[in-house]
Amino acid sequence: MKDSTRNIQGWLLFTPAAILLLAFTHYPTVTTFFQSLYTNKSILRPRRFSGVEAYESMFSDPIFWKVFVNNMWLALGTIPTSIGIAILMALIVNKAIPGRGFLRMAYFTPTMLPMIAVANIWLFFYAPEIGLIDKVLEIFGFEGNNWLGNPSTVLPSIIVMTVWKEAGLFMVFYLAGLQTISPELEEAAKLEGSSRWNYFWRIQFPLLLPTTLFVLINAFLNSFKLVDHLFVLTKGGPDNASNLILYYIYETAFSFLDISYASALTIFLLALLALTALAQFFFLDRRTHYR
């Protein structure tokens, strides 16, 4: 086959993906950026070029800072915990134990359920007085709590639910990672009299680092992407105590119809995520052991 034919073939194969990427990722990103530089159009006030005004008002908007900090707490609260739980669950279901298939399914179930449906269930878990959590606490003689109605407990409540939802998905990646580790290593470790913990910490965990990197990126992205449950659980309240960046963007765009400001927020979020992904690839990647 001639080189030129091969080239054409290559481009043809690439075209569908390129069209999708351009149409649904790059084009919207560019238009969003331009929208952030203009004011909104209405019959009372025509559209005009406003430059970085939207970004200036973003940095002086206390709600923006609040949702940003909330998002960081959410990331901090969900990522290490869900990764830890995922590894633990993967180690358990990687062993030859009775009912393994059932256990794997049970761990994975939360991931399969739609977030909105799950949030409707958790709404009643968290409901004061009538909720599952308060009822269980009552049995043990503890005071109930207005979990979602109290600014100091609302974000932790969201974090717990997110961990529950996410850990199962990460478990699948770790399970796949564990199964690529050669069983000879375990036998060798046993012969050498290495402890279970030592084997995990010196052998399994380092070999799982590529998986961890992948999961870390995903977990970080998810902590900014997953807001479906807020629509049902709190709508960002009370007083923005559980509001997150993406939900704030949604409110700004579709509730306030302020496309200009929503675009500025979106560009900020995109830049933040792009930078983090790059940082993770360049710094963590170097320290990750690939075979």
Binding site: F124, A127, E129, I130, N146, L148, G149, N150, G237, P238
Partner: peptide, 19 residues
Amino acid sequence: MPEGTIEWGTLRQNFLEGK
């Protein structure tokens, strides 16, 4: 009344359960 915010969506259930 409980302190903090009271959820619009579950309030009817609270009433129906006598809470």
